[in-house]
Design a protein around this nucleic acid. Structure first.
Lengths: 619, 619
DNA sequence: ACACTTATCACCTAAGTGGGAAGA
DNA sequence: ATTCTTCCCACTTAGGTGATAAGT
């Protein structure tokens, strides 16, 4: 294919990358999608079954990347499973702030990412607002609502840079799903049982997918019934309830026949629904943004962070972010891939090198509706998978910013101290489920950080957090109504493009039944939309710029002269080591260690016996 | 008990806390300690068995705390298990840089920490330098060397503040252990089997501890032998090797009798070893440090971080740190608790509030050798558990700084780009096992961050990292040689106390057999020290000063003027929400969400079928 | 032989699954 | 009666153990 121009990124070291991302287990995902994927959400958090795994290539082997995943509402509706199909059942309930899940191995080199499949299976879905688990890797979703997972690829050495980095976002429509507390479509249930190793216990035969036929079934009768039902359109209505009663044992999945074995789904009836309908959805909502502003902010934020009072810093960051919020030229781009998945890439112009604007590399693939400049957005559907929109990093932040963090681990959102911004922190959470307009950006950012913290290699994250804080503002941007009013703080600067990130793709399904989930694959999601609820999708541009103030140019605090050697070698620390085991060097090493550990509190000297006393004593 | 004055910390919100920490499962730990605890280390990493769990109380419910654990060399020797006892076998091999393991739930409120036992069981021990696992939660140890785990309690909202925060360190001597690749003392093996649920399969009877007696044993003969041996001093010499051969099946732990049931160990013979010997060790090595310097650095670092080029920022931070590296008044204090565990607290004077110097709150408990001012160090052994030394945060850094990070996740150490400091990054690692003098501080810090990243809630960490970077310099400071030359950057400010952290407590065991591990409990660790290897423990003060150059006083980079309002509240963001479902508020919330997600890349429009194409196309 | 270190294995606990019954 | 939501259960896959044999 054509190698589109590659936007250079801040982190760019001159080596251009041309990332390609493929969804692992695409076939399986498609089977589910055809039936209308359902994901169980529980109080304690449930993993997604068809797991979110990606294979990445085309990265700069030496460069470092941060990979993230988030799950956003796919539209503005609430659904109900009726007559074997998903129907729109009203407007969506308010969404809880979503977290950006940072892959645990995150700051890793392109080489490392490319050599293995990147899995986000640890992420859990829950409907529990209290979100115990310490928001570690749990995302709060609304049951009976449709969601779309998004994969983000960012070239950055550490999370600190996330805000200034280009976010390449990949959306695989096949991974769209409806969150449920209990499966509605029996066919989905059977598909899960047949493919999820942990559900082997429910397979009829015990064999993998193959012979599940119900040998196990003593009352084999029902199977056939199920099959038929399935063909009708998926399992019977409330297949679940009457389990005890064999009303219509419809599913049990595949008919004992064979068809399903391989393609389980083929058999499934949902087929009658319109397949491959072209959706009216707005597609992409990628933005590219101006950058300089962000950077300055970030710098300021960083400085603030560095200041004595963290909270104050946080506040500053927020403010700063407000200034530059805009997404400016957030050209919303959509790319469609004939794959069914779309990818957008927002390159940040600012910072270091870059290939600012638009050059997005729509190049890809072929002619599909690729590309668009930073500022307008395009909706070509057939776009090759990755749409690339170039623009300042603003866009990226959106991903990050929006996410509040649950526990308020961070300073800003921290539990007790209302550090940050003025807005009602966690308002989203607290706000009876409906986040009022004024959310606190900082909080959002924190959320992101939290995610980062998730696993081991997060490091830089914290830094990112500070920076992020500044950026966070953007979050409010549009989303909700189609009104497109840029309420969020972001606006200020704007001008650029619709700064507000078009939250979800949410384009309202074209009333017809197909519009909603209409995936190329002929997803069962085609639903009958009662009324047209959503308005137009958000307009692309609308930046939010704003108040950044402090100049805090790059090197605000003059870095001390580069330390020359000051090698640890200082001599000493622990004197000679009699024993002579290793060379002096070795001994030194140890010394160093010691010094490091120097803090050691001295093990209680001898026989003080109760260790626990320490604490007790204190008190 | 007396409520000692509580040093106020930077994060202090006025509410003083008086933390108490108790080791969970202390009884079990003591049983192991009496026999000479052994922890298996494997290539892939092995968890510690008696798990490191603490119960914390006395915290400020609303304040946020970060809890950490690290494992440092307990002394400078190498051991060998001979004739049923651990003997010193020479000088210690060089230690790999240790990582500070940040508890996954870390930035949590005092309330959260206090309501449940805090477990660090996820931490793994390995002897694999390559340390796969992405240094997530693995610490590299040397087999046949003795280690001492340390618990750190820090009042800080996020890792960013770690450097400026007070570190309260708690050391429970009972948790001291010798790393092995295979168990040496059969009694330890049996104790593990009897108490570790995962080893139930090896229990004779299958019952919990109780009847393990060897019903299983057809060849019951050996038990008694074991008992005797144990009494002699623990299991037979190389109990392991001859497993097949029943040389002296000594243990199998308890004799079939009953004694051990409850106290398994009581029976154990190690008792003959000197128990509660008072150790000559240097006990604590807490330091308090000046602070202002640190802070300023951090600020600068933050600013730098904020700057456009992350790497540059990194460099700056390092430099800055260099300036203030010193540890100055690192008064080394020791506290002993009659508990057997000692706790030290280093309060940072700098930043915000504090109760600077010495006031340490030796108060505790009773008269034991409590307290000491910041600068001198004391060795009283009987100190109540928590020793509190007040001082600038300098000390804290020590904990942090020293740890390099394995993968080089961070910018500084990042794989490809040598960002940071001049020193040979990772030198410790690379350096044939013996860290040469010139280690790169920044790297160390990164390590810490990495640790932080470990789990979910890390967030702020990154920030910490930046700050840390600045701080990192201190690391070189002393460590190596005992010469006491203050090489490290820290010095500048110093004056305060011996700034350099006395790494480990390492006080050389007083040659006599007891000196080494002599725990109050009568640990089997009392070993026969061949020659006196270590010299005196490090003198408390010796900062390593060094080259820091740039003045970068406290708030070097001026925090941007506090942003005035620009609260996120900015009006609104999303306008009206049509659908009406929830109140307008609710709708707005959703809007926000959308905005946030705004970025959405637009799901491929319709029927593009192959999602994977996205990536492929790109290329 | 010695003195560990590494890899494999059987045995358990921890945790992910959908079913079903009971709640709301 | 519906329509979800919550709990608990049996089953299966991860992972943590020390034993054991083989490697260095």
């Amino acid at each position: 294919m054509v190698r589109p121009l590659r936007a250079i990124q801040p982190e760019d070291d001159g080596v251009v990358d041309d990332p390609k991302v493929t969804l692992e287990g695409k076939d399986l995902w498609e089977k589910f999608h055809k039936l209308g994927t359902e994901m169980v959400i529980t109080k304690s958090g449930r993993q997604m079954f068809p797991q979110m795994k990606f294979r990445v290539s085309g990265l700069d082997s030496k460069a470092k990347y941060i990979l993230l995943l988030d799950i956003v509402a796919a539209d503005d509706y609430r659904y109900k499973f009726h007559n074997s199909r998903w129907m729109v059942a009203g407007k969506a309930d308010p969404e809880m702030p979503k977290r950006m899940y940072i892959h645990p191995d995150s700051p890793s080199t392109g080489e490392q990412w490319m050599q293995k499949v990147v899995s986000f299976h640890k992420l859990k879905l829950t409907n529990n607002i209290s979100d115990k688990h310490g928001f570690v890797s749990t995302t709060i979703l609304n049951s009976m609502h449709k969601y779309q997972p998004r994969f983000h690829l960012v070239r950055a050495n550490d999370i600190l840079k996330l805000p200034y980095s280009t976010f390449r976002t990949y959306v695989f429509k096949e991974t769209e799903f409806i969150a449920v507390t209990a499966y509605q479509n029996e066919k989905i249930t059977q598909l899960k049982i047949d493919n999820n190793p942990f559900a082997k216990g429910f397979r009829d035969t015990g064999a993998g997918k193959r012979e599940k036929k119900r040998q196990a079934l003593l009352a084999a009768q029902r199977h056939q019934d199920e099959q038929r039902l399935a063909e009708h359109h998926g399992g019977s209505k409330h297949s679940r309830g009457p389990a005890s009663v064999p009303p219509d044992p419809p599913h049990h999945h595949h008919r004992s026949g064979d068809p399903d074995d391989e393609k389980l789904l083929d058999v499934v009836g949902t087929s009658d629904l319109p397949l491959h309908p072209h959706l009216p959805h707005h597609l992409a909502a990628h933005h590219h943004h101006p950058h300089s502003a962000w950077f300055s902010l970030s710098a300021a934020a960083a400085a603030a962070a560095a200041s004595t009072d963290p909270e104050e810093a946080m506040r500053r960051r927020l403010q700063g972010s407000g200034q530059q919020q805009q997404q400016e030229d957030s050209s919303e781009r959509d790319a469609n891939s004939d794959n069914n998945s779309s990818c957008s890439e927002s390159v940040s112009t600012s910072t270091t090198a870059f290939r600012p604007s638009t050059t997005a590399s729509p190049g890809l693939k072929d002619s599909l509706g690729s590309t668009a400049g930073p500022s307008g957005q395009q909706h070509s559907n057939d776009y090759p998978s990755p749409n690339i929109s170039v623009g300042p990093p603003i866009h990226p932040p959106p991903h990050l910013l929006p996410y509040l963090y649950p526990h308020g681990l961070y300073p800003g959102a921290s539990g007790g101290h209302p550090l940050l911004a003025p807005g009602p922190p966690l308002s989203l959470f607290t706000g009876a489920g409906h986040g009022g307009p004024g959310m606190n950006p900082s909080l959002l950012f924190n959320a992101q950080l939290a995610l980062a913290a998730q696993h081991p290699a997060l490091f830089g994250h914290a830094a990112a957090y500070s920076a992020a804080a500044g950026l966070s503002h953007p979050h409010h941007p549009h989303h909700i109504t189609a009104s497109g009013s840029p309420t969020g703080p972001l606006h200020h600067q704007l001008k650029t493009g619709a700064h507000r990130f078009t939250p979800y793709t949410l384009p309202p399904p074209p009333q017809s039944s197909n519009s909603l989930g209409g995936s190329p694959l002929g997803s069962a999601f085609e639903t009958v939309t009662p009324g047209s609820l959503h308005n137009s999708t958000l307009p692309p541009s609308t930046g939010s710029r704003s108040l950044s103030n402090s100049p805090t140019p790059k090197q605000s605090s003059p870095p001390p002269p580069p330390l020359s050697g000051s090698p640890p070698s200082t001599a000493d620390a622990t004197p000679a080591t009699p024993t002579g085991g290793s060379s002096s060097t070795a001994s030194e090493l140890k010394s160093i260690e010691k010094m490091v550990n120097g803090l050691e509190v001295k093990p209680s000297s001898d026989h003080v016996t109760s260790p626990s006393k320490c604490s007790d004593d204190v008190k």
